[in-house]
Structure formats: C-alpha cells, structure tokens
C-alpha cells in the first residue's frame, strides 16, 4: 500500500469499546499496545491497532461513566475508513 494514500478520521461513537475492538480484529487489525492517558481531567484506556501502515486508536474512558463514547481515530486508506465507519454506524 502506498503510504501517501493514508487519510485521517476521528469519530466518537456511542457503542461499547469491546464491540469496536472485535470489529477491528475481524478486519485483520492487531493490538499493538495499550496505555492509560488523561485528558480533560478524565482517564482513558487507549488501545492502538495496526494493520501494515494503517493505525487505529480507540480511547475509552475508564470507570463507570455514562455515556460511554469511545473516541476512534483512524489513519488508513479511504476504503478502510469507510469500512470502519460503516461497521460502527
């Protein structure tokens, strides 16, 4: 894949992060690493998925919070972005 073709998209979705993880694994992404981050005074569990040059990070707020709206940031081809957005719709 040509690196120059990669595009970026970030979305916040109201579906559980487990479902997002499962969809990414089904699409051939693998977990690269996890980390705990803090932004806006909130703790997040950030998971990075990779497939070749494509990268998807899923940040899910830690704890019993409502609503849970994981932030998904995709750096991938146009078709990968549409596929992920389609699965999460």
């Amino acid at each position: 894949m040509n690196v120059k073709e990669l595009k970026v998209k970030s979305i916040a979705v109201l579906i559980p992060s487990d479902k997002v993880h499962a969809s990414l694994l089904e699409m051939g992404f693998s977990v690269y690493s996890t980390a705990t981050t803090v932004s806006d005074g909130r703790f997040w569990n950030k998971m990075l998925f990779v497939r070749g040059e494509e990268r998807v990070s899923v940040s899910d707020e830690i704890g019993d919070v409502y609503p849970k709206d994981p932030v998904i940031t995709i750096c991938g081809s146009t078709s990968t972005i549409s596929k992920i957005v389609g699965v999460l719709d």
Binding site: V3, K4, L6, K7, V8, Y32, S33, T34, A35, T37, K46, L48, R55, V56, S57, T73, I74, C75
Partner: peptide
C-alpha cells in the same frame, strides 16, 4: 508508554 502511544494518528 510506547512512543506510538504518545502520538496522534496523523497521516505522513
């Protein structure tokens, strides 16, 4: 944390 975890996913 790993360097990649500190980076935002931005295209090249």
């Amino acid at each position: 944390p790993d360097d990649k975890m500190l980076a935002l996913n931005l295209p090249n």
